[in-house]
């Protein structure tokens, strides 16, 4: 099974007033289908840049980045937009919902750019809102929803297109701990249910501990890429229930990782990069 995302020696350099500022300096990693990855590192370590690249919002200045089987560097802006629409779901710290727009219309937005008709859009968006527990909030506007509800709407929007990867940038950063935990639980449940790979940028060590794999970045490179025992990871969790969920997925994780690495290994530098990050 081919990986959802494959990055080989990817770099990203910004030009600021004629000075080259490297944000990423050769990152290699593979995100397999159904993966659950926590991306951690201090600010300025390049994890946001990496997120943008993995999500097809930006293009690498070096290396090879393949999302959903397509080489990003070779894609035009419209092709890249379509790739985002079809394979990636974004969840942002600040929700990024359209104001004055109902929950169901917010969720349906990606389908607009896919050319789905109005009625079908609403059906699919409503169903997705039902899955995130907001079936009763369809026609509420963002300002009529709590922070947790808004993030659920954003998650529904990210998943309505049935993407292969869900990229969440500090999804609980703007929420209190209880609400944050619930949102996290939702993300994990959706990851388990639909097999969408979940890649989450976080500062929160506890949140990071719940992922099945942890990628640590510093100074634009991956310094650690470790599979963590979900049992150990969940030991620190406040919610024993999550441990059970984590355990249930442990087998799936193993398979997915193995497949992902296997593929990367065949192309060479993928394994080397991942290994280099670990050493």
């Amino acid at each position: 099974m081919s990986p959802a995302i494959e990055a080989v020696d990817v770099s990203r350099t910004y030009q600021l007033d004629g000075v080259s500022v490297p944000a990423l300096r050769g990152v290699s990693l593979t995100v397999a289908a159904g993966d659950y990855v926590a991306l951690i590192g201090p600010s300025g370590s390049g994890k946001s840049t990496l997120m943008h690249l993995l999500g097809g919002l930006d293009r690498p200045t070096g290396g090879r980045l393949v999302i959903g089987g397509r080489e990003v560097g070779a894609l035009s802006a419209p092709e890249l937009a379509r790739l985002r629409n079809e394979t990636i779901g974004f969840v942002f710290q600040a929700f990024h919902l359209l104001p004055r727009t109902t929950a169901v219309d917010n969720v349906a937005l990606p389908l607009v750019y896919r050319g789905v008709g109005a009625r079908q859009r609403r059906e699919r968006a409503a169903a997705m809102l039902g899955r995130v527990g907001l079936g009763h909030r369809l026609d509420h506007r963002p300002n009529q929803l709590s922070g947790g509800e808004q993030q659920r709407v954003a998650i529904a929007r990210a998943l309505v297109t049935d993407p292969t990867v869900l990229l969440a940038d500090e999804p609980t950063g703007n929420l209190d701990s209880t609400t944050g935990a619930a949102v996290l639980e939702l993300l994990e449940r959706l990851n388990a249910e639909s097999g969408v790979a979940l890649v989450m940028v976080t500062h929160d060590a506890e949140v990071a501990a719940r992922a099945r794999r942890r990628i640590t970045m510093r100074d634009g490179i991956v310094v650690a890429d470790t599979a963590q025992d979900p049992l150990t990871g969940s030991a620190g969790s406040d919610e024993p229930g999550m441990g059970g969920l984590g355990t249930a997925r442990a087998g799936g994780l193993g398979t997915a990782r193995a497949g992902g690495l296997g593929t990367a290994g065949a192309s060479g530098p993928g394994v080397a990069g991942a290994g280099g990050g670990g050493s």
Binding site: A77, A81, N85, H96, P110, Y113, R114, T161
Partner: peptide, 16 residues
């Protein structure tokens, strides 16, 4: 601008 960014993130092409 943020709305534009969001629309692009979910698949809007420059032309859209």
């Amino acid at each position: 601008t943020r709305e534009i960014g969001l629309r692009k993130a979910v698949g809007a092409r420059p032309r859209d």
